[in-house]
Amino acid sequence: MIEFKINDQPVEAQAGWTVLDTARQYGIHIPTLCHHEAVEPSGNCRLCVVELRDGDWSKVVISCMYPVQDGLQVYTDSDRVKNVRRWILEMLLSECPASSEIQRLAQEYGVEQTRFAIHDPEEDCILCGLCVRTCKEVVGVSAISMVGRGVHKVIGTPYMMPSDACVACGSCVTVCPTGAMRRRLDLVRGEPKTRMAHSAV
């Protein structure tokens, strides 16, 4: 049994758990975007940052991957943590203006508006890669992947053509935290031959 503190509250955990696992077990809320229980964490969105302190020493880490250790002192809402979250959300607001989930989160964390220019008002993908990880780890087909690097990165299929590997299961849409996969799904699975909106009952 490992004992440590989250926001000064003593908690117990087992080896192999992360700080986030433990926090959730104790009902301590830490926001996440790229985390999904069905796939391995990847640490992309950085929203789940927490601060570790030990005397004067302090460090910001991501709770979704930080392994629990005896005697940790974790703070989920310190000034440093808030600064990181604020900027992430402010940047996401301008990067993914079309996502209501981002707007909701931003509001929750007190970010009302963004100082940055909006490049694409339609954009809603935060490139958290959940869809890619789900396609690989849960569905097992790896139909989609990250394409390109850095600022040019997008979610896509080989050659940006409908993928032969895709089984059209829609898991990517289901796990997507911002709803961005929805409008990308047809690029992946191909245009359906028939699209029936509604059947008469």
């Binding site: 950085r46 301008s94 940055f116 850095g150 040019h152």
Partner: peptide, 20 residues
């Protein structure tokens, strides 16, 4: 910015915004 791998948001978006 050009060399950022783009995996995490602060680096991928932050460097561009800082540069802007």
């Amino acid at each position: 910015e050009e060399e950022s791998c783009g995996k995490c948001i602060p680096c991928r978006l932050g460097l561009t915004r800082l540069r802007e």
